[in-house]
Amino acid sequence: MYPIERVEPLNAEVTRMVVRAPEIARKIRPGQFIMLRIDERGERIPLTMNECDPEAGTVTIVFQAVGATTMRLAQLKAGDALLDFAGPLGNPTELEGARRACVIGGGLGTAIAYPQAKWLHEHGCEVDVITGFRTKDLILLEDEIKACSTRQIIMTDDGSNGNKGLVTQALQQRIDEGADYDLVLAVGPVIMMKFVAATTKPYGIKTLVSMNPLMIDGTGMCGGCRVKVGDEYLHACVDGPDFDGHLVDYDDAMRRGVMYRSFEGAAREAAEGRDCNGGTDGERKGA
């Protein structure tokens, strides 16, 4: 069991959770992820590390309550425990050698891009961080990113923070202003990563994207997470999750990403049904 040390809502949809997992905390690097399972009935879901503290022995995850599992996860409290927490999985993001980087986070992707920005900042790289949200109430990790970026640009779809537009517009503007990036890293919805890659391609800027396909085992044995990169399918869990943004087939990824959508409603209803009954799995508290 993996005890939950702290749970904190970052906004109405997004939760930050600190989990005690000393072995993983010692090993995990920016870009790597964990698979967790809440309890015996649970599914395995991948979540990318947001922060780790090797001395405290904790790994922090940030997630958005969108489906049955994340909704259930969001209801857990400090003192509860997760049944399974496996990692580090995937490859660390290749950040060595970058001198002038732009890290781009879309929505929840901001939390996943944060450790890379922090690593780059700590290793003497000039880091611009562009983040994008639907509206200002959903802005994530503003202070944390401020502390580890050269320049922070926050965009909102509705302009409610006074900075209306898409992350790609901000990126284009920075390129036009002469920002001479040697690395662009994008984490967020597939459609956003697609357009970031399209923005950098004409300039030949090395662009990494962190893909987020469906996963089951997360160790390379089932192919559920395959992503079309160039002419071949690669496994995001072992070959990724970062890939060359100019080679990924985003349309294929978006299509595969919704394959299980029809099941999600049923899963949510079942999860809500369990909650209404006060939880049927015995291990949960305060449901």
Partner: peptide
Amino acid sequence: GLNGVSVASELLTRVNLMKAYQFPEYETP
């Protein structure tokens, strides 16, 4: 890569390890 295409180990892992045949009582579809 089409939807509806999987390798056997994905189907078998979902069903055997994750008990997806008991969805939604078990959460893996």
